[in-house]
Design a protein around this nucleic acid. Structure first.
Length: 587
RNA sequence: GCGCCCAUAGCUCAACUGGAUAGAGCAUCGCCCUUCUAAGGCGAGGGUUUCAGGUUCGAUUCCUGAUGGGCGCACCA
């Protein structure tokens, strides 16, 4: 319907050009909005106001001119000018209800569109370091990323979802060393655990299984481990960073390469498989788990650096290699190879994005925590230097969820082992409520997550409101059958003209909005729009439910009403699927 | 100190990307179950959109500045 009006207006614009009222080279954007107030008709355009300058006419006068030129269309019953120069379109009911047939025919495909034009896109998200279980902060990125991926897929993109596994680097050494030290204490050694080590209970579990599998073959005495190690924080001249670095060296030397690798791999495998299970329990899956170690081993980093070198964007200073990111607007140049010969994290990130490009994606989406925002310019700089349009990379930032419990803000730190895990959240709140809660907010919006509220008042969570609407419809349809009626959507579709109540036309209008909401939400990466839409649709349904009886004697009315709510059920299902929430048949 | 993000009803958040009288939920106060699930519906109250300027037919939205909050400013990952 909206497209029809757009077509009418496009024709009008052409006529205005032909009549010399507006310049030939002007191509105004035809803007048609769904009216908020039904006194304003069904659709409205601000075209007259937008062209007022180009035409040199006051908006209302121009609006009158436009209305004269609007071709007669059976679907449009009335066109009028209102307010400062809006043109309001009133659509007849049978045109409004046409959407029902579309929903019924297209089923799960209703709402799909092709704004993505089949372009391939890689969505990388979560990518938490495998140094511990996921916490609720990661949950937001997971819920958001998964929904964005669904949205893009529905909007006609070819989507691939990826998790980048940072299984290399110092943090991983700290992890492996932490595991080993806990293993030593299980073996009976006594010492003070480093303040910079990982202290969570999950470390013990990994150590326990090491002990179970390898007995004491990995054991060394605390005396030899701590001999010559620089003091920890809290001791005289202590430094927690130096302390842990020395312990890492000791672990590698005392264990030898093979045994160290055993501990390291046990730690990574255990944590990563835990993360995978956790995410899958949260309804979040990936097509690839991309290992940073694999990246290093296959020489991609060197290839990427060579590419930058060839573009003359690398130089040497003070023994290190620098990337000229300031050429592309970054604040300062960035080191890619340190003076000790080690490549920086940034170097592997350049390589990772280089690799993504090599895989031939049309669009790369990275979803990061907002604390990494300062990192965006340098990665984009690297993309540009490698000869890619920086807009090929879209970085979406997700703000942290600030957790409250008992009115207290919860401090979270992976290192200290004090955090609310995603798993706890799932257990307490449930997957549906948690997913909905996360995705309900715009991603860049700061978000308060009150655990007490989410748990104690879980029945008032809006997700249940929507699911309830779905379950209600299912129940009504069951009842109809129990009463001996048939569910005949064809009979319903031919009788749609009997629908005339305010609630019924309102529902038809809401249904018609869904495809454009999907398209807009996808292009702006905003799944929260789906959540809000579903709340509106559910409200329309509940309101209808209270106002009308669906299972009535008259066949044509009954068929029409049951068909209408069947369409609502379909759209609720489609929308909930996008945001990863289930659509229960009963509650 | 510099940079990015945010600020909307008592609370948590929307606002079709510059449009008409800024909307929902929670909380508060009325009403509606002999009817397909009351996890529901109908209605009321609640706002100088943090503040001060600017751009224009028109600003919550864009620009400048101020205030308050979050985050970032490594040869760490």
């Amino acid at each position: 319907m909206k497209q029809q009006i757009a077509q009418i207006l496009t024709d009008v614009v052409q006529q205005l050009k032909d009549q010399g009222i507006i310049p030939e080279d002007l191509t105004p954007r035809i803007n048609i909005e769904n009216t908020r107030d039904k006194a304003h008709g069904d659709f409205a355009t601000n075209l007259a106001m937008m062209l007022t300058k180009a035409a040199g006419m006051p908006p209302r006068a121009l609006a009158e001119k436009i209305v004269e030129l609007v071709a007669d269309k059976p679907a449009v019953v009335k066109v009028e000018i209102a307010g400062p120069g809006f043109i309001n379109f009133f659509v007849n009911d049978s045109a409004k209800f046409a959407i029902v047939e579309k929903v019924i025919t297209e089923k799960a495909d209703f709402g799909c569109c092709n704004v993505g034009q089949g372009k391939s896109v890689l969505v990388e998200f979560v990518s938490a370091n495998p140094t511990g279980p996921l916490h609720v902060g990661h949950g937001r990125g997971a819920a958001y990323g998964a929904s964005v991926a669904n949205l893009l897929s529905v909007a006609g993109f070819k989507v691939s979802k990826e998790y980048y596994v940072n299984d290399a680097g110092r943090q991983m050494d700290i992890l492996a060393t932490s595991v080993w030290l806990r293993y030593l204490s299980i073996c009976g050694e006594e010492f003070t655990f480093p303040s910079n080590g990982y202290k969570g209970d999950y470390i013990f579990e990994i150590s326990e299984s090491l002990k179970a599998e390898f007995g004491t073959t990995l054991k060394k005495t605390a005396l030899e481990v701590f001999a010559g190690v620089r003091a920890d924080e809290g001791q005289v001249d202590g430094d927690k960073e130096k302390h842990i670095d020395d312990l890492i060296v000791k672990a590698k030397n005392l264990l030898g390469a093979t045994h160290y690798e055993t501990v390291f791999q046990a730690a990574v495998d255990s944590i990563l498989s835990d993360i995978k299970q956790d995410l899958s329990g949260f309804g979040v899956t990936f097509d690839q788990w991309f290992s940073e170690r694999a990246l290093m081993e296959t020489g991609v980093i060197d290839a990427a650096l060579e590419k930058l070198q060839a573009a003359d964007k690398i130089y040497e200073k003070e023994g290190a290699l620098w990337f000229r990111s300031t050429d592309y607007g970054d604040e300062k140049d960035r080191v890619v190879v340190r003076d000790n010969g080690l490549k920086t994290y940034f170097a592997s990130d350049i390589a990772y994005h280089f690799n993504k490009l090599e895989r031939g994606f049309d669009l790369l989406i990275d979803i990061w925590g907002s604390d990494h925002h300062g990192y965006v310019p340098r990665v984009k700089a690297a993309m540009t230097a490698m000869g890619t349009n920086p807009e090929t990379l879209e970085v979406l930032l997700v703000q942290f969820a600030i957790l409250y419990r008992g009115g207290e803000k919860l401090a979270m730190s992976t290192r200290s082992g004090q955090f609310v895990t995603l798993r706890e959240l799932r257990d307490e709140v449930g997957v549906d409520a948690a997913r909905f809660f996360y995705v309900q907010r715009k991603s860049e919006q700061h978000m308060d997550f009150d655990l007490d509220l989410a748990v104690s008042k879980s029945n008032e969570n809006p997700v249940y409101y929507i699911q309830y609407a779905h379950a209600r419809i299912c129940r009504v349809l069951e009842q109809a059958i129990e009463k001996g009626y048939s569910l005949d959507v064809q009979a319903g579709l031919v009788n749609l003209e009997v629908l005339e109540s305010e609630q019924e036309t309102h529902i038809a209008t809401e249904l018609a909005k869904y495809p454009e909401i999907v398209a807009r939400a996808a292009l702006s990466y905003e799944p929260h729009q789906i959540a809000y839409y579903l709340k509106d649709l559910a409200h329309a349904l509940h309101s209808y439910y209270n106002a009308s009886q669906f299972i009535v004697e008259e066949d044509n009315i009954r068929h029409a009403r049951l068909t209408l709510i069947t369409a609502v059920r379909q759209v609720i299902r489609n929308g909930l699927a996008v945001i990863g929430v289930s659509a229960p048949e009963s509650m």
